[in-house]
């Protein structure tokens, strides 16, 4: 009985840390699907994940770990250190802000607010990289990335909700 309880609690522990684990796997792995040879196709899974779990004020979603994940992402992608961390933290701030001002949450409102936030952050990213670091970047890639991230948000949100329900049960 004791052993079974201990196993259950360790499983619950892992389960509750899944979002952070998924964030780290996604920044290290990128989920780029480049072998499908779809031109411009890309979406930013960490943006969706961070926005959703900050919005829900998930207790195991540590901002410091998000910051470190940003550093990892910069290293993997080859961007100057700190750029992704800044983006991720800005998403956290935006999500925390909307959480504080919202009395009755509306998924569609959140969805469009998410579009506004990621557009703003990607614009900031593009500006910093081109102006301060002299990177040549394709604007179209950013636009497509924003579009697909926005589109996939609603799909991933339903999966995350299912996960949250499992945690509450």
């Amino acid at each position: 009985m004791m052993v079974s309880l201990r196993t259950k609690s360790s499983f619950l522990k892992i389960y509750s840390w899944l979002p952070i684990l998924a964030l780290y796997i996604s920044v290290l792995n990128e989920f780029d699907l480049n072998y499908l040879n779809l031109e411009y196709f890309s979406f930013n899974f960490p943006f969706i994940l961070i926005f959703f779990f900050t919005l829900k004020d998930f207790k195991h979603f540590d901002y410091f770990l998000v910051f470190i994940a940003g550093l990892f992402n910069d290293t993997v992608v080859g961007l100057p250190l700190g750029i992704s961390s800044l983006s991720y933290l800005l998403i956290c701030i935006a999500a925390a802000y909307i959480r504080n001002i919202t009395i009755r949450p509306n998924p569609v409102k959140d969805w469009f607010y998410f579009l506004f936030i990621i557009s703003l952050i990607n614009s900031l990213n593009y500006t910093v990289l081109t102006l301060f670091f002299s990177f040549d970047l394709i604007l179209m890639s950013y636009l497509v990335n924003v579009f697909f991230t926005f589109t996939f948000y609603i799909i991933f949100v339903s999966i995350f909700k299912y996960y949250m329900r499992g945690l509450n049960d």
Partner: peptide, 20 residues
Amino acid sequence: KQKFSLLTLLSISIFVIVLS
């Protein structure tokens, strides 16, 4: 549950960008 406030982390990330 949070070790650092977002403002602190934001400042650190800007500091890291400048350093890099």
